[in-house]
Each structure stands twice: as structure tokens, then as C-alpha cells.
């Protein structure tokens, strides 16, 4: 092929490729726009305050209060984070600071494996192991403190609860948090540790005073990213959380997070007026929460991981 043809072809392809580069941004905007338009009927006919802070959920009567679902989402996510964060950070520190490079190469595939397991399988595991464990062991054990700490009150006889959802979620987001936190820790210059150790600090003192202050932004971002994963997780949570539209008062109460609401009701959403708009509003709310957390953590992580190079 003559040179002029080759460079002409190159220019044409370059122009065509530009379309591809607009796709991700367009897609994100399109998703937002579609959900926004579809939730207009309900956003226009109900004041935002009763939608967000109303707790009456009676679609047949036209009452749509999302508070039970929003609070269900927040409860489950917070419980998951409380369980997962200390364990994940300690694990990431252990992998990064105490193990040899060879062990690290062995562990990474295991984390990938844990991340690859489909959420419905986590759900089955939750139903088989976690729900009975909560019902038979944790609820009787912790319920005794219910009179002192109201969040431990046990009024729900089944194990399908905020706690079961939180535990399953904690296991699901663990590989994410661990691998990102580990990656962040790896960007801390080795010389920093050597300097601290040379001054006679123990390894833990080095971590506490030299590594963690430097890595704190990145570690925090990894937690936020895990949090946004937890918010959107559907099937596994749906299977173990009980799905009762109420505002949970205790970790042993059943809850009904937003993703579960959407997944459970798509079947009848066409038969009740405004119901489809309500479910789209639920999707929009969920997307809004996830986007805010994601954008923050992505930007923070970029900043942190780029400093290395």
C-alpha cells in the first residue's frame, strides 16, 4: 500500500475512534437521564420531603415513602463496614508489611477468587450458614444486652436480619477493600520504612507513625469504594435480609434495602399506577448515592496512585 493511503487510513480510523471515546460519558449521562425522566411522574406529584422522609409505603393508595428502604440500605451498609473495615485494613497491612513477595503473589489470586464468586452464591451461603448462625447463636448471645443497647434488641425470631445482610456484605466487599488498600500501601516509598526502622522503631511503630499517615487518604478511599459496592449489592442481600418495609431499630430486625425493593417488585410495577415511576426513583436514589461516593473515591485514589509514578 502506498504511504499516502496508509496515513489516510490512519486519519480516518482516528476520526472513527473519537466516537468510541465519547461512549462512556454518553452512556453514564444516558442512564442518569433515563432514570430521571422515568421518575418524573412521581417526583412531580409528590413533594420530595414525603418521598425521602415519609415512612408509609402503600403503592395501592398512592403513598410512596422511601424512608424504610433508604434506612434499610444505610443500616445494612454500616453494619457491613463496621465488620469489614478493621479486618480488611489489618489484612492489607499484614500482606503489605509482614509477608514476603512470594506469599503476596500466592494471596492475590485467592482474593481475586473471592471477588469472582457470584453474588447469588454468596446469598446461598448466607441462607445456609449466616442466617442460622445469627438466629441460633448471635441473637441469643447479644440479645441479652438489648436492654442496655437498643440496637441489640431481639424481637425478630428469624435470622433474616440486618446483621445477616451485613455479614454477607462484609465478606463480599472484603476482597475489594483489601486489594485497593494493599495497592495504596505499596505506593509508600520503601525508604520511608527503612528510615523509621533505622531509628529503632518497631515494625508496628513504623506502620503507625510512618506508613499510615502517608497512606490514610488512599485507605479511606478504598473504604468508600467498598461502601459504594455494598450500597448497590442486590441479590445476596435480598436473600438474607428479610425484606420487611420497616425502619430497623436493631441489627436483628429485618430490613428492606433499595436494591431489594427494585428487584422484588419489577413484576407488578406495570399494574399499579406510579409504581414504575416509584421503582425508577428508587434506582435514581441508589445511583445518586453510589455516584457521589464513587466520584469522591476515584478522584482521591487517582491522586494517591499517581504520586508513585
Amino acid at each position: 500500500m502506498p504511504a499516502s493511503h496508509r496515513s489516510k487510513l490512519d486519519r480516518w480510523v482516528q476520526r472513527g475512534f473519537w466516537i468510541f471515546s465519547a461512549l462512556p460519558t454518553l452512556l453514564a449521562l444516558l442512564i442518569l437521564a433515563a432514570l430521571w425522566i422515568k421518575s418524573q411522574p412521581i417526583l412531580l406529584s409528590h413533594p420530595l420531603k414525603t418521598l425521602l422522609f415519609g415512612s408509609a409505603w402503600k403503592p395501592q393508595k398512592g403513598e410512596f415513602g422511601f424512608l424504610p428502604f433508604i434506612s434499610g440500605t444505610i443500616w445494612v451498609t454500616v453494619v457491613a463496614l463496621v465488620i469489614a473495615v478493621p479486618i480488611c485494613i489489618l489484612t492489607a497491612l499484614y500482606l503489605s508489611e509482614y509477608t514476603s513477595a512470594r506469599t503476596q503473589r500466592l494471596i492475590k489470586p485467592l482474593l481475586d477468587l473471592l471477588a469472582a464468586i457470584p453474588s447469588v452464591v454468596y446469598g446461598v451461603w448466607g441462607v445456609l450458614i449466616i442466617v442460622p448462625w445469627v438466629q441460633n447463636s448471635l441473637a441469643p448471645l447479644l440479645g441479652r444486652w438489648g436492654s442496655i443497647l437498643p440496637i441489640l434488641t431481639t424481637t425478630n425470631p428469624t435470622g433474616y436480619s440486618v446483621l445477616a445482610g451485613g455479614i454477607v456484605l462484609a465478606v463480599m466487599i472484603a476482597p475489594f477493600i483489601v486489594s485497593i488498600a494493599y495497592e495504596v500501601l505499596q505506593t509508600i516509598p520503601f525508604g520511608l520504612r527503612q528510615a523509621s526502622l533505622a531509628l529503632g522503631a518497631t515494625r508496628w511503630q513504623t506502620i503507625k507513625y510512618a506508613v499510615i499517615p502517608k497512606a490514610s487518604t488512599g485507605i479511606f478511599a478504598s473504604i468508600v469504594l467498598g461502601c459504594s459496592r455494598a450500597l448497590g449489592e442486590t441479590m445476596a442481600v435480598l436473600m438474607v435480609v428479610g425484606n420487611v418495609p420497616q425502619i430497623p431499630r436493631s441489627i436483628f430486625d429485618a430490613a428492606y434495602p433499595l436494591p431489594a425493593l427494585i428487584a422484588n417488585n419489577y413484576g407488578e410495577m406495570m399494574s399499579i399506577p406510579l409504581y414504575d415511576a416509584a421503582l425508577m426513583t428508587a434506582s435514581l436514589l441508589l445511583l445518586g448515592m453510589v455516584l457521589v461516593l464513587n466520584i469522591f473515591s476515584i478522584l482521591a485514589l487517582r491522586h494517591v496512585l499517581r504520586e508513585k509514578t
Binding site: P24, T25, L27, A28, I31, A34, L35, L225, S228, R229, L231, G232, E233, T234, P259, I262, A263, Y266, L279, M280, S283, L286, L287, V290, L291, N294, I295, I298
Partner: peptide, 16 residues
């Protein structure tokens, strides 16, 4: 944009 899309929950893709 890709990172943001990556973080959108699958249930939202389903609804969309």
C-alpha cells in the same frame, strides 16, 4: 467515566 460506569450497581443497569 469508565470508572464511574464500573461502579454503577448491576440492578441499576437492569432498571435502565
Amino acid at each position: 467515566s469508565l470508572d464511574i460506569l464500573w461502579g454503577i450497581p448491576s440492578i441499576v443497569y437492569g432498571a435502565f
